[in-house]
Design a protein around this nucleic acid. Structure first.
Lengths: 124, 124
DNA sequence: CCAATAGATCGACAGATGTCAATATGAAAG
DNA sequence: CTTTCATATTGACATCTGTCGATCTATTGG
């Protein structure tokens, strides 16, 4: 049985009038394709680490956080902090603003809702 | 150790009356703690693989999918499919229902909204 | 009972990932 | 220019993860 995202997707209507949405109503109309899956996986991979989630929440709670202020609350070395900020930035979740010797991190413009939802996913 | 730059980041402290904080309004009221971060990270780790995302979307689109019907569309071996279903199940995202020799997988009750949102995260 | 089949588990392996010490880069201060 | 400080990068290491062949388990049908 091959599932094709193109035109093989059958909705309930094609089976006639018996649209039973009681137990098996689909959550989506079609399975996602490979490129979308790869892109989403990359985003979630950036969120799949407790250190990065704490980073994100620190940024989200303060609006803006300097790299140097991550080391102590996260109990991680400076290179490790730098490594994680890079991953979050490459995933398009945060942006760094270098002012003088310091880099200030903030949630990327347009991603605030996503970040908010991501950090509160336990309660919905 | 706070870094007070000369160009002061004037961030109006939250929750009272909202002064206009166009640029730095916090997205959350407080950083998440370690146990929450660990739990969330575990959930997102389950979503950080394109094969598992396709699995989830196949289940979400069909309401229910037999393990045997994953092998072909995912182009993965049976042990690999079993490995991924286990991870999704342990993350609390899907449940398996063994009927005879077959196991039918569906989105865990109560997690439908989360799964729907997760699979459409690119478009919000 | 035995044979066939769906799925789970095991063992092995390559590649990815988190971590930190050492070092490099780049900007401010003396 | 030299020093100092905040970050980035490199290199090394241990651990984790995705994958599959082989095998085990459990259920159905003779």
């Amino acid at each position: 049985m091959k599932v094709d995202t193109k035109d093989t997707v059958q909705r309930d209507e094609v089976h006639g009038d018996e649209v039973q949405t009681e137990c098996c109503a689909p959550l989506t109309d079609a399975p996602i394709d490979d490129s979308v899956a790869a892109e989403l996986a990359r985003t979630y991979a950036a969120l799949a680490d407790p250190v990065r989630l704490k980073m994100l929440s620190l940024i989200a709670a303060s609006g803006e956080v300097c790299s140097c202020d991550f080391v102590e609350p996260l109990a991680k070395s400076q290179p490790t902090v730098s490594h994680h900020t890079k991953i979050l930035a490459e995933a398009g979740l945060i942006d760094g603003d270098k002012r003088g010797r310091w880099v200030h991190w903030r949630v990327r413009s347009g991603r605030e809702d996503f970040v908010r939802r991501v950090l509160g996913a336990g309660s919905d």
